[in-house]
């Protein structure tokens, strides 16, 4: 019953999105004008863009240009531009270090967990919360779920250590009560590291990340729900055929942007969770940069690794964006 109506709803959906994205009817005439005239006619738009452009140039691009440090031997006195060139020295140094591939592998693994595996959970929570009709209850639960976002990593890791402690930790107590050994040292065994990381991230971010999806859901056309329910779609069906397609664009954009972070793991969390037992998998590029690059004053080396991370991110984002553009029409540019 529902299946047949789904087509209808999808049609409606498409209609609605077409309506929204309708081209400027006078677009054709504008296109024929020379570029400078078109630019001139848009001057108020450039004026509106101006603060953001100034911001990006001064705050982002000038420091990004400072990445030439990756090819220079940095001298305090001579500054970024005056320092002597050293060519690809730092890149060679990095790629010839025996640790390099292990670091890249670790970083990719953690990046995969953070960017891909963790990604759907906030959407799921948003969909769940959307199903809750009791407004008070919804408000309270939402506030609770976003609470951990305010706790600093130091506090969370301290709590985590307490929960996961061998013998005395809550988790091991439960395992013991269920007849297990209860002496597993989770933080000292590399096998558990990724699971711990994943759980900590979900716990901390799920509520916070779901806010943006909730907002997107609020923008979904109510008529579509009415139509779907009229056609006999139950709530699961509505969720699948109306809500999800309705926030598809938001999901797609966030995913494309998130993919760029595949080669960065962040420093603080890794550093706090790292133990001699799990360092074989917990050492990532970000940790390495802080340990080797900054603390020892090897700024060029740190920049070189940053450049590698950025380049990989760029390739991934461009690729994901064009694939997405082709198949789903959701794209950043």
């Amino acid at each position: 019953m529902c299946a047949t109506t789904c087509d209808k709803i999808e049609n409606l959906q498409r209609e609605s999105s077409m309506r929204k994205g309708k081209q400027n009817p006078s677009g054709i005439t504008i296109r024929t004008k020379p570029l400078w005239k078109r630019m001139l006619s848009c001057w108020p738009l450039y004026l509106m863009l101006l603060p953001a452009i100034v911001y990006y140039i001064l705050i982002c691009y000038v420091p990004i240009a400072g990445n030439v440090l990756a090819f220079k031997d940095y001298s305090f006195r001579k500054g970024i531009w005056g320092s002597p060139w050293v060519g690809m020295k730092y890149f060679n140094m990095f790629f010839s270090s025996y640790d390099c591939w292990r670091l890249i592998r670790n970083t990719l693994h953690i990046g995969f967990i953070k960017c891909i595996l963790e990604f759907p959970f906030a959407i799921l929570l948003a969909l769940l919360l959307n199903e809750i009709r009791a407004e008070k209850f919804k408000k309270v639960t939402q506030t609770i779920t976003y609470l951990p976002h305010f706790l600093s990593s130091v506090i969370i890791v301290t709590m985590l250590q307490r929960i996961l402690a061998p013998n005395t930790g809550v988790l091991n107590q439960i395992i013991k009560a269920l007849g297990g050994g209860g002496d597993t040292f989770f933080l000292m065994q590399s096998g558990y590291f990724h699971r711990i990381l994943f759980t900590m991230d979900i716990w901390r971010n799920i509520g916070w990340d779901s806010i943006i999806y909730l907002a997107a859901i609020s923008g979904v056309d109510q008529e579509l729900y009415e139509a779907a329910s009229m056609d006999g779609c139950n709530r699961l069906g509505q969720c699948w055929h109306v809500t999800l397609p309705g926030i598809r664009g938001t999901i797609g954009l966030l995913f494309i942007m998130g993919v760029g972070g595949l080669l960065s793991s962040g420093f603080e969390q890794m550093w706090l969770l790292r133990t001699p037992g799990n360092m074989a998998v917990a050492d990532t590029l970000d940790v390495y940069v802080v340990r080797i690059g900054l603390q020892n004053g090897q700024f060029g080396y740190a920049s070189a690794i940053g450049l590698i991370q950025g380049l990989v991110g760029l390739v991934l984002v461009v690729a994901t964006n064009s694939i997405s553009k082709k198949f789903t029409e959701v794209a950043l540019w």
């Binding site: 990445n67 440090l69 740190a302």
Partner: peptide
């Protein structure tokens, strides 16, 4: 692009 490339600690501080 600016989301993917950071300036790094030193160039950012200098700027």
């Amino acid at each position: 692009f600016t989301m993917l490339f950071g300036g790094g600690t030193i160039p950012t501080y200098v700027q």
